[in-house]
Amino acid sequence: SAVVMEEGSPGEVPVLVEPPGLEDVEAALGMDRRTDAYSRSSSVSSQEEKSLHAEELVGRGIPIERVVSSEGGRPSVDLSFQPSQPLSKSSSSPELQTLQDILGDPGDKADVGRLSPEVKARSQSGTLDGESAAWSASGEDSRGQPEGPLPSSSPRSPSGLRPRGYTISDSAPSRRGKRVERDALKSRATASNAEKVPGINPSFVFLQLYHSPFFGDESNKPILLPNESQSFERSVQLLDQIPSYDTHKIAVLYVGEGQSNSELAILSNEHGSYRYTEFLTGLGRLIELKDCQPDKVYLGGLDVCGEDGQFTYCWHDDIMQAVFHIATLMPTKDVDKHRCDKKRHLGNDFVSIVYNDSGEDFKLGTIKGQFNFVHVIVTPLDYECNLVSLQCRKDMEGLVDTSVAKIVSDRNLPFVARQMALHANMASQVHHSRSNPTDIYPSKWIARLRHIKRLRQRICEEAAYSNPSLPLVHPPSHSKAPAQTPAEPTPGYEVGQRKRLISSVEDFTEFV
């Protein structure tokens, strides 16, 4: 048969007729292969192709491409040299491709048809291009793949890379869960390890502090508590009631339409708007009261037996805890006409967050109470924005700035309102402590230090009264110190430094 060459192609190359033996071998191979691939376009007849790359030819070592076609129900084999250009295909004639002069020997084609199974398996396991790669995943090629499931790999992101949580363990979102698992493993320790309690022994800490320079003076030496005195035992138990972190309780009120001037209507609300609910979820963490331990979680007086509701929101960081007394989460009882059960919590909070959804101005004093010092007013606006402002009593104007209003988005509203309420509550605590000038409020841990110092002074006084020969370590507060001759004046800087060093040991009130 003659071949018409394309323009620009090399000279004529004689194409030899395939021997009958080659056709029989390739026909047997075509019957084993699956003929249901995917359909081509209507211009080209339905056909199945599979590209198999052999590394070497037997005796020649030339890479070839073998295409199996099922045109007219008769499979045909096409061998081509890759750099050459194939002729145009037609549905009426068999596929013809040019070969190099080196394939002119018909014996070479017979060798190609009689490829060993080793070469076929190696060509099938190679990388296939384009559409033949999808075909190689079918059941027909499963014989050339190794048996057994593939090893499982770690989760992959859409980009093909490992997620960040699997790369950096410290930033993994499941870090707290692993800590819980470690605690569970520790709890399952053997009885021999049960006595080993991690941490620092208080006796060891005391020993280090006792021999430090801070205890060089007799006034700073630790003293032993009497065991037989019940009054001192009660004082030590009272110390446990003062937490070592700051605590805040903040009221949250929802004002519906037409309720801006009605205290009873505001306290009777059992739910609010959708934006109000989203605002609550951002204030803190939802907790169930019956599962809380009052000595570990500050509840601000809420009952854990269901008297004040089942849930509330709280927030904490390293040095403070805040609980929100939310009116809509507290039960509304029919027998309580004046809502006294709610007001006994909300009316005693220094700061209230008022979500004013009424469309009218909310005035300070609508919720009557002796300790309502500051109101954080949240007014929802259009386009997911809110107006946040402050209202306070006249005696609080020096501590709280009420002249600045803020426009905040719904997303950042819980954070801004919480921070403003916490700052206002700190100012309210300082303002409330002014009624007792001898006990200015600095912080909870300073209050613990003052309680310890008062307890020490009482013990020293009782020891001096029981044994008059012992001198008083600290003179009583009601006694007057003996007159001392004025010492020589020293520079102001040295006096300030000495006073600062003494105050650092005794108390921190002056620095606050």
Rank of each mutant, 00 (worst) to 15 (best):
F508N: 15
N269L: 01
S235G: 12
T332D: 07
E288D: 09
V323P: 02
Q241K: 12
Q293Y: 10
Q419P: 01
R450N: 14
V351A: 03
H248Q: 04
P414K: 00
K342H: 05
D410I: 00
V430T: 04
K444H: 10
I407V: 09
P442I: 06
Q370G: 15
H431Q: 10
Q497I: 09
F415W: 03
P294L: 14
V354C: 03
Q429I: 12
D308R: 11
V473N: 15
K406P: 15
K296H: 06
Y245Q: 06
Q321A: 14
P468E: 13
S479V: 09
L286Y: 05
V495Y: 09
R448P: 13
L283V: 01
V495D: 15
V335S: 13
Q497G: 14
G365V: 03
E307F: 11
I459C: 08
T281V: 06
T438E: 14
L346E: 06
R456C: 10
M396P: 01
P294R: 11
R411V: 09
K296A: 06
R458V: 15
L283C: 00
Y355N: 00
V388N: 00
S219V: 12
R456A: 13
E494I: 06
V416Y: 05
S231V: 14
S504W: 06
L364M: 15
G256L: 00
H432D: 05
E263A: 05
P243Q: 08
V297C: 12
D341G: 15
V400W: 15
P468R: 10
E384Y: 05
A481W: 09
C385H: 05
S433T: 12
K296G: 10
P437H: 07
A417S: 05
L225G: 09
G272M: 02
I353W: 00
P491E: 15
H431G: 04
A322P: 02
L472R: 13
K343F: 09
P437A: 07
I377C: 06
I250E: 01
Y383Q: 05
E462T: 07
L390Y: 11
E461A: 09
V473C: 11
C292V: 10
G282C: 03
G496K: 08
S503Y: 05
S268A: 14
E228A: 06
G398N: 06
E307V: 07
D410A: 00
D357H: 03
Q321P: 04
G256P: 03
T379Y: 04
K343E: 07
W315T: 03
H271P: 03
I459G: 09
R434S: 09
G347V: 15
A421N: 00
S235R: 09
R456I: 06
A483M: 09
V505A: 14
N436Q: 07
T277C: 07
L280H: 02
I223N: 05
T332H: 09
P476L: 13
D336E: 12
I223A: 07
H451S: 09
Y355I: 01
S219A: 08
K363D: 13
G284T: 06
D382S: 05
K296T: 07
I353M: 02
D246S: 07
V378N: 01
A463K: 07
T366D: 04
T247Q: 15
A251C: 05
Y313A: 12
G309Q: 11
N386L: 01
V351E: 00
Y441L: 14
R450Q: 07
I407W: 06
G309N: 14
K342P: 06
K480W: 12
Q230G: 09
S352L: 04
R234N: 14
A427H: 12
G309A: 14
L422Q: 02
F324Q: 02
E278A: 08
T312W: 03
D439Q: 08
K221Y: 15
T366S: 06
I459A: 08
S229I: 08
A463N: 13
T312G: 13
S244R: 10
H432Y: 15
H432P: 03
L501Y: 09
A463R: 07
K499I: 07
S231A: 13
E218I: 10
S231D: 15
A265T: 04
L267D: 03
E510G: 14
L364C: 15
R285P: 05
P222K: 09
T402M: 07
T277N: 14
T247E: 15
L422W: 04
F311L: 04
H451F: 10
D349H: 07
G258I: 02
F279R: 00
L280I: 10
R411D: 13
L329T: 04
T438C: 08
S352C: 11
L264F: 09
A481G: 12
I287Q: 10
V297E: 15
L299E: 15
I242R: 07
Y274W: 15
D341Y: 14
N467Y: 14
S235M: 15
N372S: 10
A322H: 03
Y276V: 01
P482G: 12
S244K: 08
A417I: 05
L387R: 06
F373L: 15
D308Q: 14
V495Q: 14
M330C: 07
L422V: 10
I502E: 15
S428Y: 05
P222A: 13
S389F: 07
M320S: 14
Q293L: 10
K343C: 05
Q419Y: 02
I502Q: 15
R434G: 09
R500E: 15
L224C: 15
F371K: 14
K343P: 05
Y254W: 00
S403G: 11
E462A: 06
S358T: 03
